[in-house]
Computed example of a mutant assay.
Amino acid sequence: MHYTLRQLEVFLAAAHTENITRAAEQLSMSQSAASSALKDLEKQFSIQLFDRIGKRLQINELGRALRPQAEALLDQAQALEQALRQHDRIGELKIGATLTIGNYLAVDLMADFIQRHPSASVKLHVANTEAISQQVLNFKLDMGLVEGELQHPDLEVTKWRDDELQVFCSPEHPLASKATLSDKELIEAQWILREPGSGTRQAFDRAMHELLPKMDIRLELQHTEAIKRAVENGLGIGCLSRLSLAGAIDSGRVVALPTPSRDLRRHFYFILHRQKYRSEGIIRWLELCRNS
C-alpha cells in the first residue's frame, strides 16, 4: 500500500479547514509534518488534490472525487479500531437536525440513546434543511434529521415520520374567530414565516404555491419561538409544525386556524451520504428513531 491513514487524515482535515496550519492543529501535528504528509501523498501518485491560493487550500475536482472514498475508508478504520478495543462500545455521533426536530424531538432521542448506550457521545447541530444537507455532504455530520424534501445524487433520503403544519394567530387577531380561512383571507393576511431554505418554508410554499405572488410576507425569521412570540404580539399570522405549537395552543397563547383547502401535510426524513460508513452508532441511532 502506497499511502497511509495519516496521509488521508491530513488530506481530509485540509479539505475541511482549507488551511494546512488549522488541519495540523486539528490532528495535533506540527505544521511541517502535516504539509509533508500531504505533499508525499500527492507526489506518490503524481497528482494534485488542492489548488494553492496563498495560504488557502481549495480542494480541486480530483480531490472532491476522492474525498468520499477517503472519508468512508477512515470511518471504517476508526470503527475497526473501536471494535478491537471494545467491541460493544459506541463512540461519538454527530447528528444534524432542523429546527423543529432539534427543539421538539432530538433532545429526547439523545437522552434515550445515551441511557441505552452510556459510552456514546452525541453532538447535535441545529440548522435549516439546506445547511444540514451541506454538512452531511461534506462529512461534517454523520447524518441529518430534516423537514425539507431533498434530491441530491450523493444523499440517501429516507422517510422517517409524518408531520403537518398549522396556521395560527393571536387570540386577539381579527381572524381568531374564523371557523375556516378562505384563500382571500390567506392573501389579505400579514404573514410571519420561516426563512427560505428551511423545511417548514418549503412545505408552506408548496401548499400555497398559486397564492404566493399575492401574499403579504411581513417577516421571515429563523427560529420557531421568535415566530410564535411575534404572532402572540399581533404582528401577523404564522404557519409552523403542529409539533411546535401544541403547548402554545393548549395554553391559549395562540389559536389554530383551519385551512381545509390547503394540504399542509409533510414528512420528516433521514439523510446520509451514500458513501458514509454505517457505524454501529449510526445503525443504533436509526433503530431508535424508527421505533420512537
Rank of each mutant, 00 (worst) to 15 (best):
Q82E: 13
D88I: 00
K94T: 04
F50N: 00
L57T: 08
Q78F: 15
G54D: 10
E92I: 05
L84Q: 09
L74P: 02
A77W: 00
R64F: 01
D75S: 04
T98I: 09
S46V: 12
A79W: 08
G63N: 01
R85K: 10
S46K: 14
R56K: 14
A97E: 03
R67T: 07
K94Y: 08
A97T: 08
Q69P: 06
Q82N: 08
T98F: 07
L66I: 02
A77M: 05
L105K: 08
I59L: 12
G96W: 09
Q82P: 03
A97M: 04
I47R: 07
L93D: 05
A97S: 12
R52C: 15
Q69Y: 15
N103H: 14
L105I: 12
F45R: 07
R85I: 09
F45C: 00
L80F: 11
L66F: 05
Q76Y: 09
R64S: 03
L62H: 02
K55H: 14
R67C: 04
L62T: 00
E81V: 08
G63C: 08
I101M: 02
K94D: 01
L49K: 04
Q58N: 14
Q69R: 13
T98Q: 01
Q82R: 12
Q82W: 11
F50Q: 01
A70M: 11
G54V: 00
R85N: 04
Q78A: 14
L62R: 00
D51Q: 07
A83S: 13
D88W: 06
D75F: 01
N103L: 15
R64V: 00
L57D: 06
A77I: 02
P68K: 07
D51H: 05
L66M: 08
E61N: 08
I90C: 07
A65F: 05
L84M: 03
L105Y: 11
L74F: 03
I101Y: 03
G63V: 04
I53K: 12
T100I: 11
L57Y: 10
A70T: 03
Q82G: 13
R85F: 06
D51A: 12
E71S: 05
A97Q: 04
L80D: 06
I101V: 11
A79E: 14
N60V: 07
A97R: 09
L73A: 13
L62V: 00
E81R: 11
Q58M: 15
L66G: 00
N103D: 15
I47F: 04
L49W: 03
R56A: 11
N103E: 15
E81M: 10
R56G: 03
G96K: 01
R52G: 14
D51W: 06
F50Y: 01
